[in-house]
Design a protein around this nucleic acid. Structure first.
Lengths: 237, 237
DNA sequence: GAGGTTAGTGACAGTCGCTGACAATTGACA
DNA sequence: TGTCAATTGTCAGCGACTGTCACTAACCTC
């Protein structure tokens, strides 16, 4: 069904992604020039920039794929469950199938290494965060839709998604700086963090150093039903 | 106490910041070249890059000042109150004095316009988010210190700060896209949003469209003590 | 299957952000 | 006033990115 032209395009695109990933992982993002990438695939520099708007974009080709799939999965999810639960279960649900989609372009370990490169390259960190934010906006819109609330009048969709995404990022950052870079470890870390969201917002953490003085200043958040969750000594990196 | 040399440096730096801000606001960030900025101040391009590592950096000179002051204020805050309260009250406490510090370099309205430029320029959004993240890390460390918990073993400091910052960003984005660009409006928006953090994490938002089915999938967050907060029709932009 | 159409590519020139190296200038201090 | 050190200007160059135009190759039609 796809013409020769179409397939050829797909092939060059994938080749560029793969070559770029290998070079980035091997010698770093900044140290790799676009000329080197195109030399590896044997196309002109101009062609590269027809496929990717910037050198950054090729670095995020797979991350984009992941986000897109996750959002799709949230959209497809049948109604029911609290918003937080929806976000979280969809995570569980999609983890594997997304991995398979990536494997069709680059080996998973390479993708994981690229993830680390992103997390340790300031300019890429910046772009990554912007992508996350754009995703947040779309997620918030979806949550608002499925809960039947007004995205503009009611802050809760954006607030929830902002908090959730923030926690997710914190988790993956923590994972990235750790030793175990397997998919399994990443998954575990994210789950641990998300589950701490409730306890962390509690009034008092009930640990040495916390001065449980009386009423504080301004608005107090509603205290969680499990007010003092001991650290549980979450597996550090 | 400051020598002539020192004062001269400070003056060029401030001039560069001011000229850059004016040009950015006038014709956009991307459309403004570094050559134009240095022409306005009449220094060489090389000098510009000795003061600022990049064109982006001059755009964030004031944001950096703000962050630095806020963090300082948190550090100085006496013990007591829950972590969330500390973050929030410090906000109230510092708002004004920071405004005054900015006025010494550029007029406040110009700074506000620059803020809008940042929020609407993709590459600047990216950098801004990275700065926020770096600030998160420092804030988390500070919270961990004052609560006497271990930043590595206990996820709560990072989780709390991540959630808090995420909400702050959502608020200021919302403010930036609205009509009222005064400092007062910004402050109000941030406060509204922060106060919604608790309710948004509740089990069920209790509004049409929310299907209050039984037990959902995985971990359930502790339900907030005010489980269903009606939207309150927060003032939209 | 020849011939026209269109999409995709390569080559080239040019802009802009940014850096290294070295020379010129200027404030600091004896 | 002369010496030293900090700041600045000049110039040459790299790398990311873009516009333009000619060229090739897949597609479509007759």
């Amino acid at each position: 069904m796809t013409g020769l032209r179409e397939r050829k395009k797909q092939r060059t695109r994938d080749s560029l992604i793969r070559a770029a990933h290998e070079l980035f992982v091997e010698q770093g993002y900044e140290a790799t020039t676009v000329d080197e990438i195109v030399a590896a695939v044997d196309v002109s520099q101009r062609t590269f920039f027809r496929y990717f708007a910037s050198k950054e974009e090729v670095a995020f080709a797979l991350q984009t794929l992941v986000s897109e799939r996750y959002l799709e999965a949230v959209r497809r999810r049948p109604p029911g469950g609290s918003p937080v639960q929806v976000l979280r279960s969809t995570l569980d649900e999609t983890w594997e199938s997304i991995g398979e989609a990536i494997e069709e372009i680059v080996p998973l370990p390479l993708h994981m290494q690229m993830w680390q490169i992103i997390e340790t390259t300031p300019s890429l960190v910046a772009v990554h965060l912007r992508h996350s934010m754009e995703m947040e906006e779309r997620l918030a819109a979806e949550i608002a839709r499925r809960e039947g609330v007004d995205l503009e009048g009611d802050p809760r969709p954006r607030v929830l998604v902002a908090a959730f995404s923030g926690v997710m990022r914190a988790a993956s950052r923590c994972w990235g700086s750790g030793g175990d870079t397997t998919v399994r470890a990443a998954r575990q870390k994210v789950e641990t963090y998300v589950d701490q969201l409730g306890p962390a917002l509690g009034q008092d953490w009930g640990t040495p150093g916390a001065h449980t003085s009386g009423a504080g200043a301004h608005s107090q958040l509603p205290s969680a039903s499990t007010p003092r969750t001991p650290p549980e000594t979450a597996p550090s990196n």
